[in-house]
Write a protein that binds this DNA or RNA. Structure first.
Length: 585
RNA sequence: GGGCGCGUAGAACAGCCUGGAGUGUUCGCCGGCCUGUCAAGCCGGAGGUCGCGGGUUCAAAUCCCGUCGUGCCCGCCA
């Protein structure tokens, strides 16, 4: 019945009889003439009709689903709408058919109207009609097409791995699924296809990819949901550059597709150490400067007790110049409070006066040469605000790094600063002094000897892809021999019996001629979010959940029948029963 | 697990600090007028458990406590 989408039509169609179909965006009834904007998946076209000839015009309300047949004609001179793709033409209606009326809307289908997110999610099918959301859906589809196209051309095989897998308590909390056939046992939904893709390398696939749904049962953030989508890929006989090259090609293709921009084919690389020192983050936002400077040497014998104490306990003193900005007492207090929340014991701030002197509550504790040194090192100019922190290296750089981002980050993702972070430490020290992996326990070390002898200093073959301070994803060259893998488990404190029980099947696989291999995974939601200039991952996920894991539309998760629980061999705790009783009221 | 903000008509808000009749604005909805608009315009109308519970008070949308929901953040997230 439909002959054209709205934006198929232009001046070349003038005089033709056409039928369009879609939803009523607006009706403007002037009495003797009425205009109706019909929106379909492509865009909007204006319908013109005389209300006297079309009784149904009076019936039309926003978001009615209609089809309209009529003749394309040029708009009268002076009434063109340059803001509309089809603004040169209109359709003179002959028949208007109401396919489906719409109830009064919970909110208007209009990008300019801000609506509470819960209301949007309750009626997500309407929210997705809004041009911005429709564009995000489309962008996501084009992104995955570009990914598939690129990898297909490069000879990759798309393979699906199971989403009911075994639980691994390391790392993030697993989403669990009870087994009916094996009462009391549980599957886990995969946090990533990590081990399966490594097995595909053992299987001789050589180049694998998957657009994989992954699950992590941790608290939500604006860039974190329980389920998310990753591009997961792996290749055999690969070194670091093979991994980075293919990911760069994929990202270049996606950016070209969504932004129409040709990126440089290779992204800057920065070591983890340098990223931490300069940006105070392992996901540096390199779109702006405001870099962290080491000031420790300026305070060799300072009279300022806070600085002395930090240096005496092997700490450091560093600072950033956050530039000229409003700096009221309230503002200073708020930033100091934020620094404390991030783990600092305090924050020193200094404001550069017009004559170059530094104004600060602690200025009186600092000598002339110290103040001058701070000013010089941070390239301070009139009006600049300088922030200093003194503590352990880790605390100082992470606090200043977080403040740097909060005070300096551009609001929009106009500029795209991709960067590789390489040479991660192999292990991280826990609070109790034990070691844990910094990526995952299948990441290979730079050197097995280093790893054994100086595990705290050892570096790994792990790499992160970062875009505008967003961690897109990470990859590594994997361990491909069982002996090294056992040693890593050993250093991590996983005893041989446990390792065998949990990963024996995997260690077994590594024994049969496993090729050297490596790979990567990056979050498609986050990538599309940034490229679409969105600040929440939820804007590019069609049906996301709220911070408490609730879907306001379907009300999932829900209670289940006692019969279902019995089949699974599961009983609810008394706490859960209480909650259930309350919710039944 | 914790911190902060928000919750008022179908939607978005103001009102709250400094208690005094559910008061107001924009959009939507209903009715009417209107021949070139494009978030059309004009006139009229309907629409409220001020999230919920408790407390203080002569009196609570407003103050206090709790609770639920929601957003941001810390912890957590290999």
């Amino acid at each position: 019945m439909r002959t054209h989408h709205a934006t198929d039509l232009d001046r070349t169609n003038i005089g033709q009889s056409v039928t369009v179909a879609g939803w009523i965006q607006r009706r403007r009834d002037h009495g003797g003439i009425a205009f109706v904007d019909v929106r379909d998946a492509s865009g909007i076209i204006q319908i013109v009709a005389d209300p006297d000839d079309h009784e149904e015009l009076a019936e039309l309300r926003m978001e009615f689903c209609v089809s309209v047949s009529g003749t394309v004609r040029a708009r009268p001179a002076g009434t063109e709408n340059p803001g509309l793709e089809t603004g040169q033409i209109e359709i003179s209606a002959e028949t208007i058919v109401i396919l489906s009326p719409a109830a009064t809307l919970p909110f208007m289908i209009d990008d300019r109207v801000e609506v509470d997110e819960k209301v949007r999610l309750q009626h997500r099918y309407l929210d997705l009609r809004r041009p911005r959301m429709a564009a995000n859906l489309k962008a996501r589809s084009r992104a995955t097409s570009a990914i598939r196209r690129t990898l297909d051309e490069a000879g990759f095989l798309e393979v699906e791995t199971p989403t009911l897998v075994n639980s691994t308590p390391e790392g993030a909390r697993d989403m669990l699924v009870p087994s009916r056939l094996r009462k009391g046992e549980f599957y886990a939904l995969p946090q990533s296809p990590q081990l399966f893709k490594q097995l595909l390398m053992v299987a001789g696939v050589e180049r694998y990819f998957q657009i994989a749904r992954c699950y992590r049962d941790e608290d939500f953030r604006s860039d974190r949901q329980l389920e998310f989508t990753q591009l997961d890929l792996e290749g055999s006989f690969w070194g670091r550059d093979d991994v980075l090259d293919i990911i760069e090609r994929v990202l270049v293709a996606v950016v070209k597709e969504l932004r129409g921009v040709d990126l440089a084919e290779s992204f800057p690389r920065i070591t983890w150490q340098e990223a931490m020192d300069r940006y105070g983050s392992d996901k540096p936002d390199t779109r702006f400067g405001m870099e962290i400077e080491d000031l420790s040497d300026l305070f060799g014998d300072s009279e300022f007790a806070v600085f002395n104490k930090a240096l005496a306990s092997d700490g450091t003193i560093r600072g950033i110049n956050v530039g000229v900005r409003e700096w009221s007492r309230a503002r200073a207090d708020a930033v100091t409070e934020r620094a404390k929340e991030l783990g600092a014991k305090g924050l020193v701030w200094l404001v550069v006066e017009d004559d170059g002197t530094l104004r600060s509550p602690v200025a009186k504790f600092l000598g002339e040469s110290e103040l001058q040194g701070i000013s010089d090192r941070l390239s301070a100019g009139p009006g600049d605000v300088l922030l200093l922190a003194a503590d352990t290296w880790k605390t100082v750089v992470t606090v200043l790094g977080a403040l740097r981002v909060e005070l300096g980050r551009p609001a929009q993702h106009e500029e795209l600063a991709f960067v590789w972070v390489v040479d991660f430490p192999m292990f991280e020290e826990e609070e109790d002094g034990s070691l844990t992996f910094s990526h995952h326990p299948f990441t290979s070390p730079h050197s097995v000897e280093d790893m054994r002898e100086r595990p705290r200093q050892a570096l790994s073959n792990a790499y992160d892809a970062v875009l505008n301070g967003i961690e897109l994803g990470s990859g590594s060259i994997r361990i491909h021999d069982p002996e090294t893998q056992r040693q890593v488990f050993d250093i991590l404190g996983i005893d041989p019996v446990t390792a065998e029980k949990r990963f024996g099947w995997f260690l077994e696989a590594l024994r049969y001629g496993t090729p050297p291999h490596g790979g990567f995974a990056f979050g498609i939601d986050r990538l599309v979010m940034a490229l679409q200039n969105e600040s929440s991952i939820r804007e590019v996920i069609p049906f996301p959940k709220t911070q408490t894991g609730l879907d306001p539309m379907t009300a999932a998760p829900t209670w289940v029948d006692d019969g279902q629980l019995a089949e699974l061999g599961i009983e609810l705790s008394s706490d859960a029963r209480e909650r259930q009783a309350e919710s039944d009221l």
